[in-house]
Design a protein around this nucleic acid. Sequence first.
DNA 1: CAGCTTAGCTGTACGGCGTACAGTTGTCGA
DNA 2: TCGACAACTGTACGCCGTACAGCTAAGCTG
Lengths: 174, 174
Amino acid sequence: MRSPGQRAGLSRAAVLAAARELIAADGAGALSMRALARRLDVAPNALYSHVADKTDLLDQLLDDLLAGVETGGIETMMTSTYRALTAHPELVPLFLQRQGARGPNAIRLGEILDDLLAKAGVDDVPEARRVLIVHAIGFAAFAAADETQRTDAGFTRSLGWLLAGMTKAPTRNG
Amino acid sequence: MRSPGQRAGLSRAAVLAAARELIAADGAGALSMRALARRLDVAPNALYSHVADKTDLLDQLLDDLLAGVETGGIETMMTSTYRALTAHPELVPLFLQRQGARGPNAIRLGEILDDLLAKAGVDDVPEARRVLIVHAIGFAAFAAADETQRTDAGFTRSLGWLLAGMTKAPTRNG
DNA sequence: CAGCTTAGCTGTACGGCGTACAGTTGTCGA
DNA sequence: TCGACAACTGTACGCCGTACAGCTAAGCTG
Protein backbone atom coordinates (compact mmCIF):
# COMPACT_ATOMS: atom_id res chain seq x y z
CA MET A 1 0.00 0.00 0.00
CA ARG A 2 1.32 3.35 1.07
CA SER A 3 2.20 5.20 4.23
CA PRO A 4 0.11 8.16 5.42
CA GLY A 5 0.70 11.35 3.49
CA GLN A 6 1.56 9.55 0.26
CA ARG A 7 -0.48 10.28 -2.87
CA ALA A 8 -1.94 7.73 -5.22
CA GLY A 9 -2.69 10.18 -8.02
CA LEU A 10 -6.41 9.47 -8.08
CA SER A 11 -9.05 11.68 -9.65
CA ARG A 12 -12.80 11.55 -9.96
CA ALA A 13 -12.43 10.36 -13.54
CA ALA A 14 -10.03 7.63 -12.52
CA VAL A 15 -12.38 6.41 -9.81
CA LEU A 16 -15.31 6.33 -12.21
CA ALA A 17 -13.26 4.52 -14.83
CA ALA A 18 -12.19 1.91 -12.31
CA ALA A 19 -15.81 1.50 -11.24
CA ARG A 20 -16.82 0.83 -14.83
CA GLU A 21 -14.02 -1.69 -15.22
CA LEU A 22 -15.02 -3.42 -12.02
CA ILE A 23 -18.64 -3.66 -13.09
CA ALA A 24 -17.70 -4.87 -16.54
CA ALA A 25 -15.47 -7.53 -15.05
CA ASP A 26 -17.50 -8.78 -12.11
CA GLY A 27 -21.02 -7.38 -12.48
CA ALA A 28 -22.89 -4.55 -10.85
CA GLY A 29 -23.35 -6.52 -7.66
CA ALA A 30 -19.59 -6.61 -7.19
CA LEU A 31 -19.30 -2.84 -7.10
CA SER A 32 -18.53 -1.85 -3.53
CA MET A 33 -16.48 1.03 -2.26
CA ARG A 34 -14.06 -1.42 -0.71
CA ALA A 35 -13.69 -3.53 -3.84
CA LEU A 36 -13.17 -0.39 -5.84
CA ALA A 37 -10.50 0.78 -3.42
CA ARG A 38 -8.81 -2.62 -3.63
CA ARG A 39 -8.70 -2.34 -7.40
CA LEU A 40 -7.11 1.09 -7.12
CA ASP A 41 -4.72 -0.13 -4.44
CA VAL A 42 -5.94 2.46 -2.01
CA ALA A 43 -7.60 2.57 1.39
CA PRO A 44 -11.42 2.42 1.14
CA ASN A 45 -12.04 5.88 2.52
CA ALA A 46 -9.56 7.42 0.08
CA LEU A 47 -12.37 7.34 -2.48
CA TYR A 48 -14.31 9.88 -0.50
CA SER A 49 -11.89 12.58 -1.59
CA HIS A 50 -13.22 12.19 -5.13
CA VAL A 51 -16.77 11.02 -4.65
CA ALA A 52 -19.30 12.23 -2.10
CA ASP A 53 -20.60 8.76 -1.38
CA LYS A 54 -21.65 5.63 -3.18
CA THR A 55 -24.87 7.03 -4.55
CA ASP A 56 -22.94 9.97 -5.99
CA LEU A 57 -20.76 7.45 -7.79
CA LEU A 58 -23.76 5.53 -9.10
CA ASP A 59 -25.56 8.68 -10.20
CA GLN A 60 -22.54 9.72 -12.21
CA LEU A 61 -22.16 6.31 -13.82
CA LEU A 62 -25.80 6.24 -14.83
CA ASP A 63 -25.91 9.76 -16.11
CA ASP A 64 -22.80 9.27 -18.21
CA LEU A 65 -24.55 6.42 -19.94
CA LEU A 66 -27.23 8.81 -21.15
CA ALA A 67 -24.81 11.41 -22.48
CA GLY A 68 -24.83 10.08 -26.03
CA VAL A 69 -28.53 9.48 -26.50
CA GLU A 70 -29.80 10.84 -29.80
CA THR A 71 -32.74 13.21 -29.68
CA GLY A 72 -33.93 13.48 -33.28
CA GLY A 73 -37.44 12.23 -32.64
CA ILE A 74 -39.43 10.25 -30.15
CA GLU A 75 -38.77 6.87 -31.70
CA THR A 76 -35.11 7.70 -32.31
CA MET A 77 -34.74 8.88 -28.78
CA MET A 78 -36.28 5.86 -27.15
CA THR A 79 -34.44 3.42 -29.36
CA SER A 80 -31.19 5.21 -28.69
CA THR A 81 -31.86 5.09 -24.97
CA TYR A 82 -32.64 1.41 -25.16
CA ARG A 83 -29.40 0.81 -27.06
CA ALA A 84 -27.40 2.82 -24.57
CA LEU A 85 -28.84 0.73 -21.76
CA THR A 86 -28.36 -2.64 -23.40
CA ALA A 87 -24.84 -1.67 -24.45
CA HIS A 88 -23.97 -1.70 -20.75
CA PRO A 89 -26.25 -4.38 -19.33
CA GLU A 90 -24.39 -4.41 -16.04
CA LEU A 91 -25.62 -0.92 -15.27
CA VAL A 92 -29.27 -1.65 -15.99
CA PRO A 93 -29.95 -3.18 -12.58
CA LEU A 94 -28.77 0.07 -11.08
CA PHE A 95 -31.36 1.95 -13.12
CA LEU A 96 -34.01 -0.38 -11.82
CA GLN A 97 -32.98 0.01 -8.22
CA ARG A 98 -33.04 3.77 -8.46
CA GLN A 99 -36.06 3.91 -10.76
CA GLY A 100 -34.34 5.81 -13.52
CA ALA A 101 -31.62 8.41 -13.34
CA ARG A 102 -31.85 11.93 -11.92
CA GLY A 103 -28.64 13.48 -13.19
CA PRO A 104 -28.36 16.41 -15.59
CA ASN A 105 -28.46 14.25 -18.70
CA ALA A 106 -31.56 12.47 -17.50
CA ILE A 107 -33.25 15.78 -16.80
CA ARG A 108 -32.23 17.23 -20.14
CA LEU A 109 -33.50 14.18 -22.00
CA GLY A 110 -36.73 14.30 -20.05
CA GLU A 111 -37.36 17.86 -21.12
CA ILE A 112 -36.58 17.12 -24.74
CA LEU A 113 -38.91 14.15 -24.67
CA ASP A 114 -41.68 16.28 -23.19
CA ASP A 115 -41.28 18.79 -26.01
CA LEU A 116 -41.38 16.09 -28.65
CA LEU A 117 -44.47 14.53 -27.10
CA ALA A 118 -46.25 17.86 -26.89
CA LYS A 119 -45.43 18.60 -30.51
CA ALA A 120 -46.78 15.21 -31.50
CA GLY A 121 -50.12 16.17 -30.01
CA VAL A 122 -50.05 13.78 -27.10
CA ASP A 123 -52.67 14.82 -24.59
CA ASP A 124 -51.14 13.66 -21.31
CA VAL A 125 -47.43 14.34 -21.67
CA PRO A 126 -46.20 13.32 -18.18
CA GLU A 127 -48.10 10.07 -18.44
CA ALA A 128 -46.73 9.37 -21.91
CA ARG A 129 -43.20 10.05 -20.72
CA ARG A 130 -43.67 7.63 -17.87
CA VAL A 131 -44.93 4.96 -20.26
CA LEU A 132 -41.98 5.34 -22.58
CA ILE A 133 -39.37 5.39 -19.85
CA VAL A 134 -40.85 2.37 -18.13
CA HIS A 135 -40.91 0.60 -21.44
CA ALA A 136 -37.28 1.36 -22.28
CA ILE A 137 -35.81 0.55 -18.89
CA GLY A 138 -38.01 -2.46 -18.37
CA PHE A 139 -37.14 -3.91 -21.74
CA ALA A 140 -33.48 -3.26 -21.23
CA ALA A 141 -33.69 -5.04 -17.90
CA PHE A 142 -35.17 -8.13 -19.45
CA ALA A 143 -32.70 -8.01 -22.30
CA ALA A 144 -29.90 -7.79 -19.77
CA ALA A 145 -31.27 -10.77 -17.85
CA ASP A 146 -32.01 -13.07 -20.76
CA GLU A 147 -29.11 -14.36 -22.76
CA THR A 148 -31.33 -14.49 -25.83
CA GLN A 149 -31.24 -10.84 -26.83
CA ARG A 150 -33.94 -11.27 -29.42
CA THR A 151 -35.78 -8.56 -27.51
CA ASP A 152 -34.54 -5.80 -29.82
CA ALA A 153 -37.24 -6.45 -32.40
CA GLY A 154 -39.77 -6.78 -29.61
CA PHE A 155 -38.76 -3.46 -28.21
CA THR A 156 -39.26 -1.67 -31.50
CA ARG A 157 -42.58 -3.35 -32.12
CA SER A 158 -44.12 -2.57 -28.75
CA LEU A 159 -42.68 0.93 -28.88
CA GLY A 160 -44.59 1.35 -32.12
CA TRP A 161 -47.81 0.20 -30.47
CA LEU A 162 -47.38 2.68 -27.67
CA LEU A 163 -46.60 5.56 -30.00
CA ALA A 164 -49.52 4.70 -32.22
CA GLY A 165 -51.83 4.70 -29.24
CA MET A 166 -50.65 7.86 -27.60
CA THR A 167 -50.62 9.96 -30.76
CA LYS A 168 -54.02 8.86 -31.95
CA ALA A 169 -57.22 9.75 -30.15
CA PRO A 170 -57.39 11.98 -27.07
CA THR A 171 -58.59 10.48 -23.80
CA ARG A 172 -62.06 9.41 -24.87
CA ASN A 173 -64.03 10.20 -27.97
CA GLY A 174 -62.15 13.22 -29.45
CA MET B 1 -34.13 -12.89 25.29
CA ARG B 2 -33.90 -16.55 26.06
CA SER B 3 -31.33 -19.10 27.12
CA PRO B 4 -30.18 -21.84 24.77
CA GLY B 5 -32.66 -24.65 24.27
CA GLN B 6 -35.68 -22.43 24.89
CA ARG B 7 -38.37 -22.21 22.22
CA ALA B 8 -39.87 -19.06 20.82
CA GLY B 9 -42.76 -20.76 19.05
CA LEU B 10 -41.83 -19.49 15.60
CA SER B 11 -43.07 -20.91 12.33
CA ARG B 12 -42.50 -20.14 8.68
CA ALA B 13 -45.84 -18.36 8.55
CA ALA B 14 -45.00 -16.28 11.60
CA VAL B 15 -41.67 -15.27 10.13
CA LEU B 16 -43.29 -14.26 6.86
CA ALA B 17 -45.99 -12.31 8.66
CA ALA B 18 -43.42 -10.45 10.70
CA ALA B 19 -41.49 -9.68 7.53
CA ARG B 20 -44.59 -8.18 5.97
CA GLU B 21 -45.22 -6.12 9.07
CA LEU B 22 -41.66 -4.89 9.09
CA ILE B 23 -41.81 -3.89 5.44
CA ALA B 24 -45.16 -2.19 5.90
CA ALA B 25 -43.83 -0.27 8.87
CA ASP B 26 -40.34 0.71 7.75
CA GLY B 27 -40.11 -0.02 4.02
CA ALA B 28 -38.53 -2.78 2.01
CA GLY B 29 -35.06 -1.40 2.60
CA ALA B 30 -35.46 -2.02 6.30
CA LEU B 31 -36.04 -5.74 5.85
CA SER B 32 -32.96 -7.50 7.12
CA MET B 33 -32.65 -10.85 8.78
CA ARG B 34 -31.34 -9.18 11.89
CA ALA B 35 -34.10 -6.58 12.03
CA LEU B 36 -36.62 -9.32 11.50
CA ALA B 37 -35.09 -11.34 14.32
CA ARG B 38 -35.17 -8.28 16.56
CA ARG B 39 -38.87 -7.83 15.86
CA LEU B 40 -39.50 -11.46 16.76
CA ASP B 41 -37.27 -11.17 19.83
CA VAL B 42 -35.05 -13.96 18.66
CA ALA B 43 -31.41 -14.47 17.71
CA PRO B 44 -30.76 -13.67 14.02
CA ASN B 45 -29.84 -17.20 13.03
CA ALA B 46 -33.00 -18.59 14.62
CA LEU B 47 -34.78 -17.59 11.43
CA TYR B 48 -32.82 -20.15 9.47
CA SER B 49 -34.84 -22.91 11.06
CA HIS B 50 -37.87 -21.65 9.14
CA VAL B 51 -36.41 -20.05 6.05
CA ALA B 52 -33.56 -21.30 3.88
CA ASP B 53 -32.03 -17.87 3.47
CA LYS B 54 -33.04 -14.32 2.72
CA THR B 55 -33.84 -14.90 -0.93
CA ASP B 56 -36.11 -17.77 0.06
CA LEU B 57 -37.96 -15.33 2.29
CA LEU B 58 -38.22 -12.74 -0.49
CA ASP B 59 -39.36 -15.30 -3.05
CA GLN B 60 -42.13 -16.38 -0.75
CA LEU B 61 -43.25 -12.83 -0.04
CA LEU B 62 -43.36 -11.98 -3.73
CA ASP B 63 -45.14 -15.11 -4.78
CA ASP B 64 -47.78 -14.71 -2.08
CA LEU B 65 -48.58 -11.33 -3.54
CA LEU B 66 -49.52 -12.97 -6.82
CA ALA B 67 -51.77 -15.60 -5.27
CA GLY B 68 -54.97 -13.60 -5.69
CA VAL B 69 -54.49 -12.33 -9.22
CA GLU B 70 -57.60 -12.78 -11.36
CA THR B 71 -57.21 -14.62 -14.62
CA GLY B 72 -60.44 -13.96 -16.51
CA GLY B 73 -58.83 -12.34 -19.52
CA ILE B 74 -55.66 -10.60 -20.56
CA GLU B 75 -56.74 -7.14 -19.53
CA THR B 76 -58.29 -8.39 -16.31
CA MET B 77 -55.18 -10.30 -15.50
CA MET B 78 -52.77 -7.48 -16.08
CA THR B 79 -54.92 -4.96 -14.25
CA SER B 80 -55.30 -7.33 -11.36
CA THR B 81 -51.54 -7.88 -11.26
CA TYR B 82 -50.97 -4.16 -11.33
CA ARG B 83 -53.43 -3.70 -8.47
CA ALA B 84 -51.80 -6.45 -6.46
CA LEU B 85 -48.45 -4.77 -6.88
CA THR B 86 -49.59 -1.26 -6.07
CA ALA B 87 -51.53 -2.56 -3.09
CA HIS B 88 -48.17 -3.40 -1.54
CA PRO B 89 -45.85 -0.76 -2.92
CA GLU B 90 -43.11 -1.68 -0.51
CA LEU B 91 -42.66 -5.00 -2.25
CA VAL B 92 -42.41 -3.57 -5.74
CA PRO B 93 -38.73 -2.66 -5.44
CA LEU B 94 -38.11 -6.29 -4.67
CA PHE B 95 -39.78 -7.30 -7.91
CA LEU B 96 -37.55 -4.89 -9.77
CA GLN B 97 -34.39 -6.13 -8.15
CA ARG B 98 -35.22 -9.72 -8.97
CA GLN B 99 -36.77 -8.90 -12.34
CA GLY B 100 -40.11 -10.47 -11.60
CA ALA B 101 -40.96 -13.44 -9.45
CA ARG B 102 -40.12 -17.08 -10.09
CA GLY B 103 -42.31 -18.83 -7.56
CA PRO B 104 -45.16 -21.24 -8.34
CA ASN B 105 -47.78 -18.52 -8.60
CA ALA B 106 -45.63 -16.53 -11.01
CA ILE B 107 -45.12 -19.62 -13.16
CA ARG B 108 -48.79 -20.50 -13.10
CA LEU B 109 -49.81 -16.99 -14.08
CA GLY B 110 -47.21 -16.97 -16.83
CA GLU B 111 -48.68 -20.09 -18.34
CA ILE B 112 -52.22 -18.78 -18.15
CA LEU B 113 -51.15 -15.55 -19.78
CA ASP B 114 -49.45 -17.46 -22.58
CA ASP B 115 -52.65 -19.38 -23.25
CA LEU B 116 -54.72 -16.23 -23.32
CA LEU B 117 -52.29 -14.54 -25.68
CA ALA B 118 -52.21 -17.50 -28.01
CA LYS B 119 -56.01 -17.63 -28.07
CA ALA B 120 -56.11 -13.93 -28.87
CA GLY B 121 -54.09 -14.61 -32.00
CA VAL B 122 -50.89 -12.91 -30.88
CA ASP B 123 -48.06 -14.01 -33.13
CA ASP B 124 -45.06 -13.77 -30.79
CA VAL B 125 -46.35 -14.96 -27.45
CA PRO B 126 -43.14 -14.87 -25.39
CA GLU B 127 -42.44 -11.38 -26.61
CA ALA B 128 -45.95 -10.22 -25.82
CA ARG B 129 -45.71 -11.69 -22.35
CA ARG B 130 -42.48 -9.84 -21.76
CA VAL B 131 -44.06 -6.58 -22.89
CA LEU B 132 -47.01 -6.96 -20.57
CA ILE B 133 -44.98 -7.97 -17.56
CA VAL B 134 -42.50 -5.17 -18.05
CA HIS B 135 -45.40 -2.79 -18.39
CA ALA B 136 -47.14 -3.92 -15.23
CA ILE B 137 -44.08 -4.04 -12.99
CA GLY B 138 -42.60 -0.88 -14.41
CA PHE B 139 -45.80 1.05 -13.93
CA ALA B 140 -46.23 -0.27 -10.44
CA ALA B 141 -42.69 0.81 -9.65
CA PHE B 142 -43.36 4.36 -10.78
CA ALA B 143 -46.67 4.42 -8.97
CA ALA B 144 -44.89 3.26 -5.84
CA ALA B 145 -42.24 5.95 -6.20
CA ASP B 146 -44.47 8.89 -7.04
CA GLU B 147 -46.83 10.11 -4.40
CA THR B 148 -49.24 11.19 -7.11
CA GLN B 149 -50.90 7.86 -7.88
CA ARG B 150 -52.70 9.22 -10.90
CA THR B 151 -50.91 6.47 -12.80
CA ASP B 152 -53.85 4.08 -12.60
CA ALA B 153 -55.61 5.65 -15.55
CA GLY B 154 -52.32 5.82 -17.40
CA PHE B 155 -51.73 2.15 -16.81
CA THR B 156 -55.08 1.17 -18.26
CA ARG B 157 -54.65 3.44 -21.25
CA SER B 158 -51.20 2.26 -22.23
CA LEU B 159 -52.22 -1.33 -21.58
CA GLY B 160 -54.96 -0.75 -24.13
CA TRP B 161 -52.46 0.51 -26.67
CA LEU B 162 -50.27 -2.51 -26.20
CA LEU B 163 -53.14 -4.95 -26.47
CA ALA B 164 -54.49 -3.20 -29.54
CA GLY B 165 -51.11 -3.42 -31.20
CA MET B 166 -50.29 -7.00 -30.38
CA THR B 167 -53.67 -8.41 -31.38
CA LYS B 168 -53.87 -6.53 -34.65
CA ALA B 169 -51.51 -7.17 -37.53
CA PRO B 170 -48.82 -9.86 -37.56
CA THR B 171 -45.18 -8.78 -37.75
CA ARG B 172 -45.27 -6.91 -41.04
CA ASN B 173 -47.87 -6.86 -43.73
CA GLY B 174 -49.98 -9.89 -42.96
C1' DC C 1 13.49 30.13 -1.13
C1' DA C 2 10.85 29.63 3.64
C1' DG C 3 6.63 28.94 5.61
C1' DC C 4 1.59 28.00 5.73
C1' DT C 5 -2.42 25.90 4.05
C1' DT C 6 -4.78 22.51 2.13
C1' DA C 7 -6.05 18.32 -0.09
C1' DG C 8 -5.07 13.46 -0.57
C1' DC C 9 -4.15 9.92 1.59
C1' DT C 10 -3.67 6.07 5.82
C1' DG C 11 -5.10 3.99 10.26
C1' DT C 12 -8.62 2.90 12.99
C1' DA C 13 -13.12 2.30 14.30
C1' DC C 14 -18.35 1.87 14.48
C1' DG C 15 -22.48 -0.22 13.46
C1' DG C 16 -24.66 -2.72 10.12
C1' DC C 17 -25.24 -7.03 7.14
C1' DG C 18 -25.96 -12.48 5.86
C1' DT C 19 -24.97 -16.70 7.63
C1' DA C 20 -21.93 -20.83 9.23
C1' DC C 21 -20.79 -23.81 13.17
C1' DA C 22 -21.14 -25.63 17.71
C1' DG C 23 -23.56 -26.18 21.89
C1' DT C 24 -28.02 -26.51 24.81
C1' DT C 25 -32.47 -28.11 25.67
C1' DG C 26 -37.59 -28.67 25.09
C1' DT C 27 -40.65 -31.90 22.43
C1' DC C 28 -42.24 -35.98 20.61
C1' DG C 29 -42.37 -40.74 18.87
C1' DA C 30 -41.04 -45.53 19.98
C1' DT D 1 -38.40 -43.83 29.75
C1' DC D 2 -35.29 -42.67 26.61
C1' DG D 3 -33.25 -41.33 22.34
C1' DA D 4 -33.52 -38.54 18.24
C1' DC D 5 -34.54 -34.42 16.46
C1' DA D 6 -35.66 -29.68 15.86
C1' DA D 7 -35.59 -25.07 17.73
C1' DC D 8 -33.16 -22.18 19.56
C1' DT D 9 -28.59 -19.31 21.64
C1' DG D 10 -23.67 -17.90 21.56
C1' DT D 11 -20.05 -16.84 18.93
C1' DA D 12 -17.65 -15.83 15.01
C1' DC D 13 -16.20 -14.62 10.09
C1' DG D 14 -15.94 -11.72 6.38
C1' DC D 15 -18.31 -8.42 4.09
C1' DC D 16 -20.38 -3.52 3.74
C1' DG D 17 -20.55 2.11 3.87
C1' DT D 18 -18.40 5.71 6.01
C1' DA D 19 -16.89 8.93 10.04
C1' DC D 20 -12.89 10.87 12.43
C1' DA D 21 -8.15 11.82 13.39
C1' DG D 22 -3.47 12.06 11.95
C1' DC D 23 0.31 12.44 8.50
C1' DT D 24 2.55 14.64 4.70
C1' DA D 25 3.35 16.10 -0.22
C1' DA D 26 1.99 19.75 -3.21
C1' DG D 27 0.91 24.31 -4.09
C1' DC D 28 0.43 29.15 -2.89
C1' DT D 29 2.13 33.32 -0.48
C1' DG D 30 5.43 36.29 0.79
